[in-house]
C-alpha cells in the first residue's frame, strides 16, 4: 500500500454534509475528532458559457459522509499511533470499505488553524495505512468570543514524500452550473434492490440456445433473490398478491391491507418509543461519564 496518493486539486463537500459536521462539532462538549468517507475522482469540467476555467482533468476528493466521535483519541492514542482494530470497526460499522476512507477531521475550539503535533502524526499514519486516505480537515472557532458565530475550517492533503501538509481549497457543492460536473459524475448506491422490469413473453423471442438458457437461469436466480428481499420490506405482501385488489376478493383484501398498515404504524410507534427511551439512557450515561471525568480531574 506504499503507493503515492493522487494529488488532489480540490476537496468537494456537500453543503448539508458540511453543515452537519459543524452541527456535531458545536454540540460536542469539548474537542472531537472523526472520519471522512468519500471518493477521489477525475472530473472533466463541462464547457459552459459562464465557466472559462481550463478544460483539463481536475482531481477532486469528494466527501460524501462522515463520522464524528464526540471525543478525542477515538481511533489513535495520545502519541498519535493508530488503533487499527477500533478504526476497522468504525469503518465497517458505517458499512464502508477501507478504500472509502478519505481522511479525518479534528475539531478543537479556540485554537490556531494549523495542524498540531499529534494531528501531523495521525494523518501521516493514516496515509501510510490506507489507500487514498490523506485528507485532513481542521475545524476551529475564533480565539476571541464575539456575538457572531463563526466557524473556521481549513483542509489539507498530506504528502508522504515531503511529509508535509498542503492547504487545499474546499468547494461546497451546491446546485448551479459550476457544479454540473459533480452531478454528471454521480453514480447512485442503494441498498434497495433493482426492480425486475421484465415483460412476460419476451423470453419467447429469445432463441433457445444452451448459452442463453444458463444465462437466463442465472438471471432468474438473481431476480428471485431481489424479489425475496423486496418481499422482506413489504412483510409478506408479495407483489403477486397485488392482483387480489381486483374482483370479488377486493373487499376482503382491502381489510387485510389496512390491518397491515395498522401493524406497521404500531411497530413504528414502538420503535419511536424505543428510540426515546434509549436516548434518555444515552443522555443519562453521558452525564454520568462527565461526572466521573470531573471526579478524575479533581473538579468536584
Amino acid at each position: 500500500m506504499q503507493m503515492e496518493e493522487p494529488q488532489v486539486q480540490k476537496i468537494a463537500i456537500y453543503g448539508p454534509t458540511l453543515a452537519s459536521i459543524l452541527q456535531r462539532f458545536s454540540s460536542a462538549s469539548g474537542d472531537a475528532d472523526g472520519l471522512l468517507f468519500g471518493h477521489v475522482s477525475r472530473i472533466t469540467p463541462t464547457l459552459s458559457d459562464d465557466d472559462n476555467s481550463a478544460t483539463s482533468l481536475t482531481t477532486v476528493a469528494t466527501v460524501t459522509s462522515f463520522f464524528i466521535s464526540g471525543t478525542i483519541n477515538s481511533f489513535y492514542n495520545s502519541s498519535g499511533e493508530l488503533n487499527l482494530v477500533s478504526l476497522q470497526n468504525l469503518v465497517s460499522s458505517f458499512g464502508k470499505h477501507p478504500d472509502n476512507l478519505l481522511g479525518w477531521i479534528s475539531c478543537r475550539r479556540k485554537t490556531p488553524l494549523r495542524p498540531s503535533m499529534r494531528e501531523y502524526y495521525v494523518t501521516s499514519n493514516l496515509s501510510r495505512t490506507f489507500l487514498n486516505c490523506s485528507i485532513f480537515i481542521l475545524f476551529s472557532t475564533p480565539l476571541i468570543d464575539s456575538l457572531i458565530h463563526t466557524h473556521e475550517y481549513r483542509a489539507f492533503q498530506f504528502s508522504k514524500i515531503t511529509n508535509s501538509f498542503e492547504p487545499k481549497q474546499i468547494d461546497v457543492v451546491n446546485i448551479g452550473p459550476a457544479f454540473r460536473s459533480h452531478y454528471s459524475s454521480f453514480c447512485p448506491h442503494s441498498t434497495f434492490p433493482m426492480l425486475p422490469c421484465e415483460l412476460r413473453g419476451s423470453s419467447a423471442m429469445v432463441e433457445d440456445s444452451a448459452d442463453s438458457k444458463a444465462e437466463s437461469s442465472n438471471h432468474a436466480k438473481s431476480v428471485a433473490k431481489d424479489q425475496k428481499e423486496l418481499d422482506n420490506w413489504a412483510l409478506g405482501f408479495e407483489v403477486g398478491k397485488l392482483n387480489q385488489m381486483l374482483g370479488s376478493e377486493a373487499a376482503n383484501y382491502t381489510e387485510n391491507v389496512e390491518k397491515l398498515y395498522e401493524n406497521m404504524l404500531a411497530k413504528l410507534e414502538g420503535l419511536a418509543r424505543l428510540v426515546e427511551k434509549s436516548s434518555a439512557l444515552v443522555l443519562e450515561q453521558e452525564n454520568h461519564n462527565m461526572k466521573l471525568r470531573y471526579k478524575v480531574a479533581g473538579l468536584e
Binding site: 462538549s29 469539548g30 474537542d31 471525543t71 478525542i72 483519541n73 495520545s78 502519541s79 498519535g80 478543537r108 485554537t111 490556531p112 494549523r114 495542524p115 498540531s116 503535533m117 499529534r118 494531528e119 501531523y120 502524526y121 501521516s124 511529509n163 508535509s164 501538509f165 462527565m290 471525568r293 478524575v296 480531574a297 479533581g298 473538579l299
Partner: peptide, 26 residues
C-alpha cells in the same frame, strides 16, 4: 492544548506558524 473533559489524555502542542516543518513525531 489540554482537554478539561478528558483529564487523563496527554496534551497536544501547536507550534509557531513559521515552524510548519517541525514534526517531532515524524
Amino acid at each position: 492544548i489540554y482537554n478539561a473533559h478528558y483529564p487523563l489524555a496527554a496534551p497536544d502542542i501547536i507550534f509557531g506558524p513559521e515552524d510548519d516543518n517541525f514534526n517531532p513525531l515524524l
